[in-house]
């Protein structure tokens, strides 16, 4: 069974590399948001560094939502999803592995480049570290929550809009604790960070079950 899951992971990475787009698109979106915000706010460096972590987090949330509608739809359209139902591996684990592969392509580059983007928003060393740490936990949570929306909208051709409406409310608690951990690097980083980790762990446990249930009813 681990072999099946490994194959799905490798397959999704291969497809992402051959077809391209997904990861780079999110990154370019992230970059353009971070570039544009300082122009909109004006030349107030103190304000910028104060709201910097929040901007990075919002950018990460929106960038995570970008490619999510294709997470299961690409497999639904060409019949690969049917073959997954016939696999001995449980659908829940397949969903989890697909989310991991998707995060690897779209979320991880965001996390790795977030210190660079943070510099553009005048964040200092500790703030850069805490933003990167919180995003490392937060972006996979976004992907997992998004998977529920992606599974619910799998048969809708223009499901992106509905997906955002479904997922953003679920993502709000993650955003709140993520930003408060990222902003209060010096005072109380640990408490909100641990809550963020708890949200992440809960979504690892629950989101694949919800998404798999949604995919099963999508055949109906």
């Amino acid at each position: 069974m681990t072999r099946i899951l490994l194959v799905i992971f490798v397959r999704d990475l291969m497809l992402a590399r051959r077809i391209g787009g997904g990861g780079i698109l999110g990154l370019v979106f992230f970059l353009s948001l971070v570039t544009v915000v300082p122009f909109a706010i004006g030349p107030d460096l103190r304000l910028l560094s104060r709201i910097g972590p929040a901007i990075l987090w919002i950018a990460a949330l929106l960038a995570s939502l970008l490619g999510l509608d294709r997470l299961f739809q690409a497999d639904q359209e060409d019949g690969s999803l049917d073959q997954m139902f016939l696999s001995p591996a449980p659908l829940e684990l397949i969903v989890l592995v697909k989310c991991m592969a998707h995060w690897f392509v779209t979320g991880l580059p965001l996390v790795m480049l977030s210190p660079l983007f943070g510099l553009m928003l005048d964040l200092d060393g500790p703030a850069l570290r805490s933003v990167a740490a919180t995003l490392l936990v937060g972006t996979p949570t976004f992907t997992l929550l998004g998977a529920i929306g992606a599974a619910l909208t799998v048969t809708l051709r223009r499901g992106g809009l509905l997906l955002s409406i479904l997922v953003v409310p679920l993502a709000v608690p993650v955003l709140i604790f993520g930003v408060s951990a990222a902003q209060s690097a010096t005072i109380s980083f640990l408490t909100p960070f641990l809550v963020l980790c708890a949200l992440g762990l809960a979504s690892i446990a629950l989101a694949p079950i919800a998404a798999a249930a949604a995919l099963r009813t999508a055949g109906e």
């Binding site: 397959r11 497809l15 060409d78 019949g79 690969s80 049917d82 016939l86």
Partner: peptide, 13 residues
């Protein structure tokens, strides 16, 4: 085995 109208093949592979 189920072979339906959709062939379950990835064009890029």
């Amino acid at each position: 085995h189920y072979i339906g109208h959709l062939d379950g093949l990835k064009s890029a592979l």
